[in-house]
């Protein structure tokens, strides 16, 4: 297996007034290509902090993090933005689509940032929307899509730039049971059929039970990292 993400000795401290609050206390973690992994833990355990550091949104206080062998701690803000654009797909809890763009334009957006030619990016965006089951809804703006549909658009957008890894932060938190199940199934299918690597920070047992790798963070450390055979993931 090839490690896409490698975290070594990651610590992260926040300042709250004069108090130094440790959020991560020496995390060593490797995410392999094709992983379908959940990152679980109680609130305040550090899972979102770790996800942000893996995604290049935040910097560790100590330690190193690399994606596809590229050391993130050596990059400046502009280079980090470029890395996020090309190597990482994000799915957030609150859908986070661009409200003034239609579904297909939202999916195209990251490709536009990468200067993909118009025809090619439109075709790819439509294909992505087809894969997430949103045929016929290409021209709807987010306000005319349900929460589940918006989250599917977010997944399509995350995949459109063909990233090395998709990071999802509580992707099902705002969805009802059926819609959440559908979304998990979708991401699982994409993982199985296309080998897309997923790392999802979640509280949701429905998500945790469907992932093949289950990482638990507690008190800023990896408390357990359990690999389950595919047939055990329900």
């Amino acid at each position: 297996m090839t490690a896409i993400v490698e975290c070594k000795g990651i610590t992260k401290h926040y300042r709250q007034g004069s108090i130094d609050v440790p959020a991560l206390r020496g995390v060593d973690l490797a995410i392999e290509k094709g992983d379908f992994a959940s990152l679980a833990g109680p609130s305040g355990s550090g899972k979102t902090t770790l996800l942000n550091i893996v995604g290049g949104l935040d910097r560790p206080t100590e330690g190193t993090i690399s994606i596809d062998g590229q050391d993130l701690t050596a990059l400046d803000n502009e280079e980090l933005a470029d890395l996020r654009l090309r190597k990482i797909g994000f799915v957030f809890q609150a859908y986070n689509l661009i409200p003034v763009l239609s579904a297909v334009e939202n999916v195209e957006f990251t490709q536009q940032l990468m200067n993909v030619p118009a025809k090619e990016r439109r075709e790819r965006a439509k294909e992505m929307l087809h894969q997430v089951g949103l045929d016929g809804m290409e021209n709807r703006r987010p306000s005319r899509l349900s929460g589940g549909q918006q989250q599917r658009v977010a997944v399509a957008r995350a995949l459109a730039s063909r990233p090395s890894i998709v990071l999802a932060d509580e992707p099902t938190a705002n969805l009802d049971t059926k819609t959440a199940e559908d979304l998990i199934t979708l991401m699982s299918d994409l993982n199985e059929r296309y080998g897309v690597t997923f790392l999802m920070a979640t509280h949701d047992d429905r998500v945790i039970s469907r992932t093949r790798r289950h990482i638990v963070i507690a008190d800023g450390r990896v408390a357990s990292d359990e690999l389950r055979p595919a047939e055990m993931a329900v």
Binding site: G55, L57, N77, E78, A81, D82, R84, L85, R86, F90, F92, N96, I98, P99, F109, T110, L113, M114, R157, A158, S161
Partner: peptide, 15 residues
């Protein structure tokens, strides 16, 4: 918050 999301998905602050 939206600007944060745009930065997360790869848009540069100067853009």
């Amino acid at each position: 918050r939206e600007f944060g999301m745009l930065m997360a998905i790869g848009m540069k602050p100067r853009q």
